[in-house]
Simulated scan of single mutants.
Amino acid sequence: MSGNEISEVAKGFTYLEGPRWHDGRLWFVDFYTCTVNAVNDDGSIEEIAVVDQQPSGLGWLPDGRMLIVSMKDRKILRRETDGSLVEHADISAHCSGHANDMVVAENGQAYVGEFGFDLMGGADHEFANVILVNTDGTSQVVASGLSFPNGMVITPGGKTLIINELFGNKITAFDIEADGTLGNKRDFANFGEIGDEPNVAKRIEAATIVPDGLALDAEGAVWIANTVNQKATRIVEGGKVLEEVNTAPDGIFAVALGGEDGKTLFLCAAPDWDEGARSKAREGRMLATTVDVPHAGRP
C-alpha cells in the first residue's frame, strides 16, 4: 500500500484540517487563513466561509445547514441558508483548551473534542473532554480524561463513537446512548499506556501511533492521520495495522474517505503542526490516493 500513487488535489494553503466528503465534493478548513473551502468539479477552490477565531471540525445538520467549530473562542457556528454565520453553541465552559474536531450525528447532535491545554504555547499535557452539543445549542461534557481527543467517527446505525487520543497512543470507542450521551468506554486500538507523563514531546516519543484525523471504512477499520510518523495508517479494531500510505517528508494531519465511490482517501499534508511556521508559509496541501474499501459511517 505504501507504493500507491498519490495525487495533489489542492496546494498553497497554511495547514489543512477537517476534510469531509459531502454533497458530491470535498470540504476542508485552512487554519491560518481562517477559511472553510470546497473543491469544485473543475478542481477550483471555493471559499465558503471565514471564521476569524480559526475553524476546525465541520458537519451538517439534517436540514443541510453546516456547523463549524470556531476553535479559539470555543464556539460552534452555524452557516445559514443565506451564507451568514450565527452562534449555534458556546462550549467555552466545558473547554480548558481550544475547541477542536467534531462529528455530527444523523439527528444533528454534535460531538466536539478540545485540546485540554495550551499546546501551541508549550504547556504541559492535561487530559481533556468530549462535549455533546444538542440541536438547540445546549451542551454538556459526555466524556473526560482523554488525551487530546481529536478525529471522531460514528459507526453506521449511530451506536458507537470512535475517537483518536492524539497523545494517548490509542483509539477509544464509546457506546452512544439513546439520548446521545456516551457509555461503555473501551479500547478500539491501544498501543501502550503512556500514563500521566506531562511532557508532550516525551509522550510522542513513547508512542507507536500519533493519531490525528480519522475515517471509517465499510469493513469497520479506520484510517488515521499518523501525524509525525509521516503516513496514513489503516487499523482494525484490536490494533492490527492493515495498510499504510507513506507521505514523507510531509506529515499527515487529517484524513477523509470520499469520492463518488467512497474509495478516495484524502490526506491533509504539511511539514509539521507548528503554529508559527505554518501560519507564515503556504506549504499545506491536500493529497489523495485510491484505496480498496469504501467509506462508512459519519462524517
Rank of each mutant, 00 (worst) to 15 (best):
Ser2His: 10
Glu8Gly: 01
Ala10Ser: 12
Leu16Asn: 15
Leu16Glu: 11
Asp30Gly: 06
Phe31His: 14
Phe31Arg: 13
Val36Asp: 00
Asn37Thr: 02
Ile45Arg: 00
Asp52Trp: 03
Gly59Lys: 13
Gly64Tyr: 08
Met66Pro: 08
Lys75Phe: 00
Asp82Ile: 01
Glu87Cys: 02
Glu87Lys: 03
His98Val: 07
Ala99Pro: 12
Asn100Glu: 11
Val103Cys: 10
Ala105Trp: 14
Glu114Cys: 03
Leu119Thr: 11
Glu126Trp: 02
Val133Thr: 10
Gln140Arg: 12
Val141Lys: 05
Val142Asn: 04
Ser144Ile: 06
Gly145Pro: 12
Pro149Val: 06
Thr155Asp: 14
Thr155Ser: 12
Pro156Cys: 02
Leu166Ala: 14
Ala173Cys: 10
Thr181Gly: 06
Asn184Ser: 05
Ala206Met: 11
Ala207Pro: 11
Val210Cys: 13
Val210Phe: 10
Leu214Asp: 09
Trp223Gly: 14
Asn226Val: 10
Ala232Gly: 11
Thr233Pro: 08
Lys240Gln: 14
Glu243Arg: 09
Val245Phe: 05
Val245Asn: 09
Gly259Phe: 14
Glu260Arg: 10
Asp261Pro: 08
Lys263Tyr: 02
Phe266Cys: 04
Ala269Met: 02
Ala270Cys: 06
Pro271Asp: 06
Asp272Cys: 13
Asp272Glu: 13
Trp273Cys: 06
Gly284Ile: 04
Leu287Asn: 08
Ala288Gln: 14
Gly297Ser: 07
Gly297Glu: 13
